[in-house]
Amino acid sequence: MSNSTTNLHRRQTLKLLGAAAASAPLLGFSASSAAVQAKTKGAEVIFSPTDPDLLNPVVHWSMKLTQQELEELAVLVDVIIPADDQSPAASSLGAPGFINEWVSAPYPQQERDLVLVRGGIVWLNAEARKRFNQSFRQLNAMQREQICDDICLESRAKPEHRYGARFFAKVRDLAATAFYTTTEGMADIGYIGNRPMQTFEGPSDEVLRMLKLKS
């Protein structure tokens, strides 16, 4: 992440993550939690599926991250997915708000993620002050990337950086999901699904050759 080549590789890697996010349900909220409510009547389980209004979505829980925490996340997600000539940075597409909604949800996994994200923000600022005597937000781009380079892969992180690496991985995955499920993010990877078409000419020759269906 310290030069333009690395940034290009990062963007290409995140495009792969984004393709998966765009083609799968949003991080797999299970039917047994958010989508289905159940009650037991004797030996019978009665399911009452909810009917979400996708045009007017409602979040049924309060947001837990503070404004300062959101501002810290905005800086970090823009290191992970910076603006380029093709698309804006992750923060401008609402990635911090998405992370806030995720970690505020009243489910066991999200409650664990809230602890990880909050603790990770504290860790990130402590590391920034230890190295540069400033908060992470106050660092210049090179200094931020220096810290992120040390935590971008948990398998390569030093023992003292492992917690930071777990935090970074969680924020990276959530930021990528937030980014690549927006209109701009889908355009960034060339995703053109979910659009009405008068005609369909079939897959391109390039796709057919990739699938070995055409020479």
Rank of each mutant, 00 (worst) to 15 (best):
S2D: 12
S4D: 10
H9G: 05
R10W: 09
R10G: 04
R10S: 10
R10L: 12
R11M: 10
Q12R: 13
T13F: 13
T13A: 13
K15F: 11
L16S: 09
A19G: 14
A22G: 10
S23A: 12
P25N: 08
L26A: 12
F29L: 13
A35V: 01
V36E: 02
V36D: 00
A38H: 00
A38V: 08
K41L: 01
K41T: 01
I46N: 00
I46P: 04
F47E: 10
P49W: 00
P57H: 02
P57Q: 04
V58Q: 12
V59I: 14
W61T: 09
M63T: 08
K64M: 14
Q67N: 10
E69V: 12
L73T: 12
V75C: 10
V77W: 01
A83V: 09
A83P: 07
D84A: 06
D85E: 13
Q86M: 13
S87I: 07
A89E: 07
A89N: 04
A90T: 04
S91M: 06
E101A: 15
W102K: 08
Y107I: 08
V117S: 01
R118T: 14
V122M: 08
W123N: 05
L124I: 09
F132A: 08
F132I: 04
L139R: 07
R144E: 10
I147W: 04
I147F: 04
D149Q: 15
D150Q: 15
C152N: 10
P159M: 12
E160H: 03
F168H: 13
F168G: 03
K170R: 14
A175V: 06
A175E: 08
A176L: 03
T177G: 06
Y180C: 08
T182E: 04
T183W: 02
T183G: 05
E184K: 01
E184N: 08
E184W: 02
G185N: 02
M186T: 00
G190R: 06
Y191P: 02
N194T: 02
T199F: 15
E201D: 15
S204N: 07
D205I: 10
V207G: 05
R209M: 10
M210P: 00
L211Q: 14
K214L: 15
